[in-house]
Structures are given as structure tokens and as C-alpha cells.
Design a protein around this nucleic acid. Structure first.
Lengths: 190, 190
DNA sequence: ACCTCTATTGATTGATTGGTCAATCAATCA
DNA sequence: TGATTGATTGACCAATCAATCAATAGAGGT
């Protein structure tokens, strides 16, 4: 029962955060959505802060697993880049609820030591993956530079998607990133 | 006195929001930093929401004026693009306090109708400026596309800067954007 | 039947917050 | 001088929320 409740509470927290577009969600709301009392949420997670951070960790872990799965099937470096991009805009990541939650967590990282630390891990991993794939295509210094701008562009496109009310397909977003990568690689080789 | 207090309160709100990295600031904190009582803040702005939105409007207006001033001195279309980029990463905009406040407002736009509306105006204006400058350099369809990716890249670089603890010079950020613009323009012309 | 441990909750508390209001103070005006 | 007006505040209120706690229920073992 323990694991089931934790999962349910994290899922409920995710929905609630996304729906209200803010981290100002009460444990009563989250617990209510999960069909239990607020006291039980305190029982399983030490307090509100821990529940929120657990939810954040869940998002990061989910993204990470999608990324790893995509990378495993990529036959060559360029395909690895595409896998990273497509993973960032995958079906699970591109729901409005997920996007809203991400943006909210970004804001939280400004005030929470632990949240900032978690996000830094994610960013470092994304960057590391990008650099690793790029090193096989361009010289090391350019790989680092292109990885940086690509990561920033991913975040930027993601951010704009979060603010746009109407949902759209990830294809256009992916195309923007892919085009940027192609341009950068071609420019270095020319 | 009226105008002086309003300015002081908005400035205090900006500092407080940036320092705490959250919109969860109490009117007592803001008023305290401005050296007045919380009741006075309610006297000048109808309520907390209005004070926050006024602060947001202040940020947007300040950025807008910087942008207009930069654009006026630009001699040609390419210089206009540089002016937009440099305006986005200008001294006033690149303080950690300002950046944090921006990100926090972005998060607020998810839950506040008015905040979303204000941000949309800013984004539309930035996009319009970019497209207008780009139209003189590349065909219309490409101008729209490049403006979109450039705006996203600006937001992304901005976002990553907000999360990085240590402050850095805007020059590297500007270089990333400029490089992207150059690549896109050159690719269209080739 | 008895004990133990976990799951679960209703009730409560202590603290915080946004907002209100009557009262005070200072300046201006008739 | 006396009246009016705007600035300013301390005290207060109602609402909300995280957290705690005592109590109940049930499962499993002895």
C-alpha cells in the first residue's frame, strides 16, 4: 500500500500543480485528488516540501528514462542528437500539464536549494549527452559551444510552449532545434 | 508624495521578489523594505495583486524603453537586430534581481490571466521588432521563422542565466544570439 | 483471544496573511 | 482660527494552511 499511495500522491501533486499553474497548492488539495486525507500525505512524505521535491524528482526521472531509451536505439552520433531532441519534446513531456509543472519547478529553483540542485543535475546530464554526441561530429571546443546554445534553445522553445495557451504538436518545435543543430554543424565544417 | 511612494513600493517589490525568488512575498515585507506600513501599500494599490502587476508592468516598460532607445540609433537592419539583442541583455536587464523577477513572472503568467496578457504583449512586440528588421535581410517567410527561433533562444539563454548562481557578463550571451542570427541569415542567402 | 504494527482520519493548533478601519498627524485653505 | 483633505499607521479580523496528535480499524502473527 505504501508504494501505491506515494505514486498516487505524486501524480495528484503533478496534476494539481499543472492545473493551478503554481506551486501554491495545499496538501489538502493534493491529498483530496488522490482520494486520501491530508494527514496521510504528511504520514508518507515528511512534509509539504518533501512531497513537492519528490514530485520534481519524478518528472526528472521520467525524462531521464525517456532519454536513455531513445539514445540506446540511436545508430550514429547525429541520430543521438535527434534522440535527445525528440526526447525533450516527447509525448509525455509535451503535455500542457507537464510543461506547466516544469516551468513552475524552474521558478522554485530560484528559492529552494534542493530544487536548484536537482535542476542542475538535469541540465548537466542534458549538456553532457549533447557534448558527447557532438564530439563525434565537430572539434571539442565547438561541441561545447553548440551544446550550450542547443540546450538554451530547447529551454526557450519549451518555455514559449508553456506560455502559449493552445497546445500544438511537438513536430514544429523539434524542427526548429534540428535546423539549428544542422546549421551549427555545417558552419563548423565549412 | 503619491508618485514617490508608488515608485518606492514597486522598487521594493522588485527587490523582494528577486531576493526571495518567488512571488510569495507578503505585502508587509514589501512595505517594510519601502519603509512604510503594509496598510499604505493597500492604500496606493488596491491589493496585493495590483501591486504585483504594477511591478510587472514596470519591468516591461523599462525593457521597452531600452529597446526603443537602442533601435533609434541603429543605422541599418543588421544593426537593428544587434540593438534588439543588446537591449535584451542590457545592463539593467541582466542584473540577477531582474532576471529572477522575470522568471517568476513567467511562472505567474501560468495562473494569472492579466500576467499572461502582459507577457503576450511583450512577446508580440519583441517578435514584431525582430521580423521587421529581418524582412530587410531575408524573404518574408524566413524572417518569421528566424524571428521565432531567435526569440526562443533569447528566452532560453535568459532562463539559464537566471538559474546559474554566479552572475556573468552579458557579452557571452550576446555572442551566442548574434552567432545564431548570422548563421540563419547566411543559410538563407546561400 | 491477545498483541503489534501499519494505515488512516477527524479534530485541533499555531502561525501567517491579505485586507479593513478608525484614529492620528500634517499641510492646506477659507 | 477652524475646517478639510490626504498621508499614514497600529490594531484587528477572517481565512487559510501546514503540521500534530489521539484515536480507530484492520491485518497478521502468537
Amino acid at each position: 500500500m505504501s508504494e501505491y499511495r506515494r505514486r498516487a500522491l505524486i501524480g495528484a501533486a503533478l496534476c494539481e500543480i499543472a492545473e493551478r499553474g503554481s506551486l501554491d497548492v495545499t496538501v489538502a488539495q493534493i491529498a483530496g485528488r488522490a482520494g486520501v486525507s491530508a494527514a496521510l500525505a504528511h504520514h508518507y512524505f515528511g512534509g509539504k516540501e518533501d512531497l513537492i521535491l519528490a514530485t520534481m524528482r519524478h518528472l526528472l526521472a521520467e525524462f531521464s528514462s525517456v532519454l536513455v531509451a531513445g539514445l540506446r536505439e540511436a545508430p550514429d552520433p547525429r541520430a543521438r542528437l535527434t534522440a535527445i531532441v525528440r526526447g525533450s519534446f516527447g509525448r509525455e513531456q509535451f503535455h500542457h500539464a507537464t510543461i506547466s509543472a516544469w516551468l513552475t519547478f524552474y521558478a522554485k529553483a530560484l528559492s529552494s536549494e534542493v530544487a536548484a540542485w536537482l535542476l542542475e543535475i538535469y541540465q548537466r546530464r542534458l549538456n553532457s549527452n549533447l557534448v558527447h554526441a557532438l564530439r563525434a561530429l565537430v572539434p571539442g571546443r565547438d561541441a561545447v559551444r553548440i551544446a550550450e546554445s542547443t540546450a538554451a534553445l530547447i529551454d526557450g522553445v519549451y518555455l514559449r510552449e508553456a506560455l502559449r495557451g493552445v497546445p500544438s504538436t511537438p513536430e514544429s518545435a523539434i524542427a526548429v532545434i534540428e535546423h539549428h543543430i544542422d546549421l551549427e554543424i555545417r558552419a563548423v565544417r565549412a
